[in-house]
């Protein structure tokens, strides 16, 4: 019986998925052998056709898993600090996010952590909440499909900073967002207190910052560390404010 499984002694997640409201995978990473079974036989360096066929079936496996996952999580919105749990194919899936457009709460994108049945739901929830916090931090609070797709490379980096080969690297949302934006970790012990926005060093120009064009609008930009999305949000707000004045 799956639910009797003892908790793993070397905790690993099986997959981390960033799904949009309809369950499409925006970004994601599968670890270890999870959803890999048919290709297990495909040896490395096999000819291209074989590889493609194996890849195809892996992709099919994954998307069928994601469909089943979506059928269970679709319609459930989880608060950023209170992840929801479902079980799919004997795996425990914990997720944050998923509030439909226009109802506040960030956006329709969900961050899903899939773990083995024996893994503690609370541990997985801790991970999902941490990553979701980092994601909404990076996306300037708007975790909808469009915003995430536009900043996909940040999402890739986030997953990579969060988890290495299934082993969790970092769970703190602020620290995660910090490393994705290439802010050097200054004082490890003080990391908690650091606020996401003002923390960057003025001397080190954050490379993710969008610079071309925006300056022409003559808007004062806040701290150095803004994502494109955040910058655009800010620009939009200023223009709206200007219009309202008139």
């Amino acid at each position: 019986m799956a639910s009797n499984a003892l908790p793993p002694l070397l905790p690993k997640v099986d997959a981390i998925l960033v799904l949009d409201g309809d369950g499409n995978r925006l970004a994601g990473k599968y670890y270890g052998d999870f959803m890999k079974t048919p290709s297990a036989a495909a040896t490395e360096g096999a000819d291209a056709a074989d590889n493609a066929a194996a890849a195809q079936s892996v992709e099919q496996l994954r998307s069928s898993f994601e469909r089943q996952l979506q059928s269970k999580i679709g319609g459930i919105a989880a608060k950023p600090d209170a992840a929801e749990v479902v079980t799919v194919l004997g795996k425990t899936a914990v997720f944050c996010g998923g509030s439909p457009a226009g109802q506040g709460g960030g956006g329709d994108v969900r961050v899903v952590h899939v773990g083995p049945a024996g893994e503690s739901e609370l541990v997985l929830a801790h991970l999902a909440e941490g990553m979701y916090e980092a994601l909404s931090n990076l996306m300037g609070g708007t975790t909808d499909r469009a915003m995430v797709l536009d900043n996909l490379e940040l999402v890739f980096l986030l997953i990579d900073e969060h988890c290495d080969g299934g082993i969790i690297l970092e769970t703190d949302g602020q620290k995660l967002a910090g490393s994705v934006l290439l802010r050097d970790e200054q004082e490890p012990t003080m990391g908690h207190g650091m606020e996401g926005q003002g923390g960057g060093m003025p001397g080190q120009a954050p490379p993710m910052q969008s610079s071309g064009g925006m300056g022409g609008l003559g808007m004062g930009m806040g701290g150095g560390d803004m994502t494109i999305g955040q910058a655009l949000m800010q620009a939009r707000n200023q223009i709206m404010a200007n219009l309202n004045q008139t």
Binding site: A146, M147, G213, M214, G216, L217, L232, R236, I239, N242
Partner: peptide
């Protein structure tokens, strides 16, 4: 101001295509 904002908006729209 209005025309300036209009211009800025047009420009912004181009920039904004992405999002």
């Amino acid at each position: 101001l209005l025309s300036e904002v209009q211009g800025a908006l047009d420009k912004f729209k181009l920039e904004d295509e992405g999002t």
